[in-house]
Design a protein around this nucleic acid. Structure first.
Length: 523
RNA sequence: GGCCCGUUCGUCUAGGGGUUAGGACGCAUCCCUUUCACGGAUGAAACACGGGUUCGAUUCCCGUACGGGCUACCA
């Protein structure tokens, strides 16, 4: 249920920190956006403040169904859940800008009434024509005198056009000759000359506000204390300062912090959604399924990353703790975070590092926790999914995987019969002369009680020693028979997890296959 | 083009007027292990360039180069 629009002046400016993450629901939430959300979240939590989710859906043309849900689900998955906002309640709603339209419209007209803004009737086509025919056309203090706006039209004509419902926008009237100083929390002082600025559109012809208007009205009304956003907003911050001044809200203007961009792993430019497919890595938190014929993107979640690992990786991409610590739990991140330690320069997206973080988190997870994470992947392949077995698999495999699906992909032979043998290694290791010894050994294994790794290992090694066989001649064969590959967990642990019957079965089948391979010509 | 931001190993970064310029990922070698990993050890690897300021600049200042962002009735 949408809350009623509130147009009352906020109560006394609260000193408590209130920050917002304000994405536009135009598609999947890009990983850069996730990092912006994270930094806002960390800053809020570190300072005992409030983290707000505001949906900036004022562009009706770019609205993508499902994007809002995607954003919310992403934040929840990562555990950076808003205290207020769309889907989270709060006293400053509604938090969806499309539901606040009347508020923006009123404020835009107020600005006109107070001589800070004006109506402009130039059509988009006319302006485009001007931009095409003139090199550096900007709708500014010089140009506005010869364009179709309320500044240089008779009052009656303006009235008439307005009454006739003629399409028009409201533009901010930027006066030349002022220096606009911004003290950015990350970059320090930045100065803009107002004569360089254009008369930004505040209210579009469809009655919706532009980002510039909406974000000022909302940040003011929602009592935002710090605006932490991407670097791409730095240039328009001068307009935002002007707007706070025009409204007479400069006393409550939030502080600004403009984050560096996340760059492509190689080459030039910022990380784009296409880079995911290009480099075979996720650049979104969750899978995104576009509609029919639309693009699909892989997510960190489905790729098999742990949310805490993604957070850790992202936090360190542009921020540092001031010491050598690399691994931070979400809580430690909150404690360590500070805006002063955010870098100024852009950071390249380093997927290798992301995988390393995930590996660290998998190692640090208990077998029981991992079992729960492996379960869906196992279920998807119709593997057994009982907790006891998955817990054992977790213990066996966790030191050699980087993402969750590795458990069932690399370790498929723990769930189903070996489907591919390393023939080259078999040729290297299998000697038919070993057959009798192997047969005896298999028999011994079958008789082994208890069927536990240390006992099994001792028994096998003792047998080998007594018969003068080098461990190196047989152990690899056991591994090959059990897993088909030379990679994998310790042989005897693997055998125990597979169980005696399966182990014996695989050994017998393996031997048969070995003979077959050696008999056939090398290929 | 104009405006704004940035630049320390391949990458993420620490540092800061005098340091053997530190850590991490990745890479290489070795140890552990009769597998693969984990782990441990070692190594190669950086202050974009040019001018200042200074006894001394990687660090401060100015340029240049390079990179990036913005320049929409998109956010």
């Amino acid at each position: 249920m949408a809350q009623p629009l509130s147009d009352t002046k906020p109560a006394a400016f609260s000193m408590s920190v209130r920050v917002r993450f304000a994405p536009s629901p135009t598609g999947a939430l890009h990983i850069g956006g996730v990092r912006t959300a994270l930094y806002n979240y960390l800053f809020a939590k570190k300072n005992g403040g409030t983290f707000i989710l505001r949906i900036e859906d004022t562009d009706q043309n770019r609205y993508v169904p499902g994007a809002e849900d995607y954003i919310i689900e992403s934040l929840k998955w990562l555990g950076i859940t808003p205290d207020e906002g769309v889907g989270f309640g709060g006293d400053f709603g509604p938090y969806r800008q499309s539901e606040r339209q009347a508020l923006y419209e009123k404020h835009a007209h107020d600005l006109v009434a107070r001589g800070k803004a004006y109506y402009a009737f130039d059509t988009p086509e006319e302006l485009e024509e001007l931009r095409k025919s003139r090199d550096n056309f900007t709708y500014n203090y010089q140009e506005r005198t010869r364009l179709k706006n309320s500044l240089n039209m008779p009052q009656e004509e303006v009235r008439r056009r307005l009454d006739a419902g003629e399409a028009c926008v409201i533009r901010l009237m930027v006066e030349p000759g002022q220096d606009i100083h911004i003290h950015d929390l990350i970059r320090g002082d930045v100065v803009f000359q107002s004569s360089e600025l254009d008369d930004k559109v505040l209210l579009k012809a469809d009655g919706m506000p532009t980002y510039h208007l909406a974000n000022i009205v909302d940040d003011y009304q929602m009592q935002i204390t710090q605006v932490i956003r991407g670097e791409e907003w730095l240039p328009s911050t001068a307009h935002h300062v002007l707007l706070y001044q025009a409204f007479g809200w400069e006393d409550q203007m939030p502080q600004f912090a403009h984050l560096p961009l996340i760059l492509k792993p190689v080459g030039n430019g910022k990380l784009s959604k296409r880079d995911g497919a290009k480099f075979g890595m996720p650049v979104f938190p969750l899978d995104w399924e576009g509609g029919a014929g639309e693009e699909k993107f892989a997510g960190f979640r489905e790729t098999g990353f742990l949310p805490a690992a993604v957070l850790n990786f992202l936090a360190l991409l542009g921020w540092h703790p001031g010491n050598d610590q690399e691994i931070f739990s979400p809580n430690e991140l909150v404690q360590a975070f500070s805006i002063e330690h955010i870098s100024k320069g852009g950071a390249r997206f380093d997927y290798e590092k992301a995988k390393w973080f995930n590996q660290q988190y998998i190692h640090a997870s208990s077998d029981a926790e991992l079992a729960e994470r492996i379960r869906p992947a196992a279920a998807a392949r119709n593997y057994r999914t009982d907790t006891e077995y998955l817990t054992q698999i977790a213990g066996l495999m966790k030191e050699r995987v980087t993402v969750i699906p590795d458990f069932v992909e690399q370790g498929y032979y723990l769930f189903e019969p070996v489907s591919g043998y390393d023939d080259e290694m078999i040729r290297k290791k299998w000697d038919a002369a070993l057959q009798p010894a192997m047969d005896t050994l298999i028999g011994a294994i079958e008789a082994q009680e208890p069927f536990a790794a240390p006992e099994l290992e001792e028994m096998v090694k003792q047998y080998l020693q007594e018969n003068g066989i080098k461990p190196g001649a047989v152990l690899p064969l056991l591994r090959l028979a059990l897993a088909g590959t030379m990679k994998g967990p310790a042989v005897f642990e693997m055998a125990v997890v597979l169980g005696k019957a399966e182990t014996v079965d695989r050994l017998k089948n393996g031997l048969q296959y070995f003979n077959q391979v050696v008999d056939s010509p090398a290929g």
